[in-house]
């Protein structure tokens, strides 16, 4: 019975992860710890395999021209890794709380920028499409700086910074939202793969937990891709804005709390 619950949880996390480009870990970890009372290490390890499954599911069923922009993903990923190395090195020298508060404001700023862009699009009457075969990527320095900052936060605080990359790719760099989510899913797969073997080696992965969850996540990711093809960009944008505000508040409280 628990296995069936894990399978359903996996479907939900995979669908949302594929839709928003977050891999699904942000939904899986709380679900596994709160609903199934699993220790944090098992929940995180299982969630990392789930994130890779989302990334694989999205790539496996993406239609032509609707997959990840691999060139962009590699540039952002390399920059994020550099930020994470610096973040790890700075740990102890820089206040994690201060950085948490600063990053919360970056998150709020990005949410505000998304809302402004939505208002601009509404006023001009331009239809925002989720996918485009031809697009020009702009504002590389800002995009790379945010990726570096996200990596630093990740290295300093152990929080994944993936949630900020989709809105930045879309709102700042001019990448269509559907392509941005697919690209983000490609990147979170790499980030998860960089940690999953540590959890494997420590024996934090349990077949009874991992298999039903991951099969559900893969199926959910496939569903998410098909749902995304039928969604309007405005709905995905709204969901992302809401998520950014929630995560920003979480980071702000984390930074301000003793």
């Amino acid at each position: 019975m628990i296995e069936l619950g894990l399978f359903v949880t996996g479907i939900a996390a995979g669908t949302l992860g594929a839709l928003l480009g977050l891999g699904g870990g942000i939904f899986l970890v709380p679900a596994l710890t709160v609903i199934y009372h699993l220790p944090m290490r098992i929940a995180v390890g299982t969630s990392l395999v789930g994130v890779i499954a989302t990334s694989a599911g999205v790539a496996a069923v993406a239609r032509r021209g609707r997959g990840a922009d691999v060139g962009l993903a590699l540039r952002l990923e390399a920059t994020t890794a550099a930020g994470a190395i610096l973040g790890g090195w700075l740990a102890g020298l820089v206040s994690g709380r201060l950085l948490s508060v600063l990053f919360a404001f970056v998150t709020f700023g990005t949410a505000g920028y998304l809302l402004r862009k939505a208002r601009q699009l509404d006023s001009t009457g331009i239809q925002d499409s989720l996918f485009a075969r031809h697009y020009q990527i702009s504002h590389w320095p800002i995009g790379l700086a945010v990726a570096f900052g996200a990596g630093m936060v990740s290295g300093l605080l152990g929080v994944g910074g993936g949630f900020i990359k989709v809105p930045v790719m879309y709102a700042v760099m001019g990448v269509p939202l559907g392509v941005a989510t697919a690209t983000s899913n490609f990147m979170v797969g790499i980030t998860a793969a960089a940690s999953v073997f540590v959890y494997y080696g420590r024996g934090d992965l349990y077949p009874l937990v991992v298999v039903p969850t991951v099969v559900g996540v893969f199926l959910g990711a496939v569903i998410g891709v098909y749902v995304l093809f039928r969604l309007r960009a405005a709905w995905v944008r709204l969901a992302l804005t809401g998520l950014l505000i929630v995560i920003g508040m979480q980071m702000l409280f984390r930074g301000l709390a003793n």
């Binding site: 395999v49 890779i52 998860a192 793969a193 999953v196 073997f197 991951v214």
Partner: peptide
């Protein structure tokens, strides 16, 4: 299976 999936991004 877990290892194979873990190696896919690489």
């Amino acid at each position: 299976g877990v290892l194979l999936l873990g190696l896919l991004p690489a």
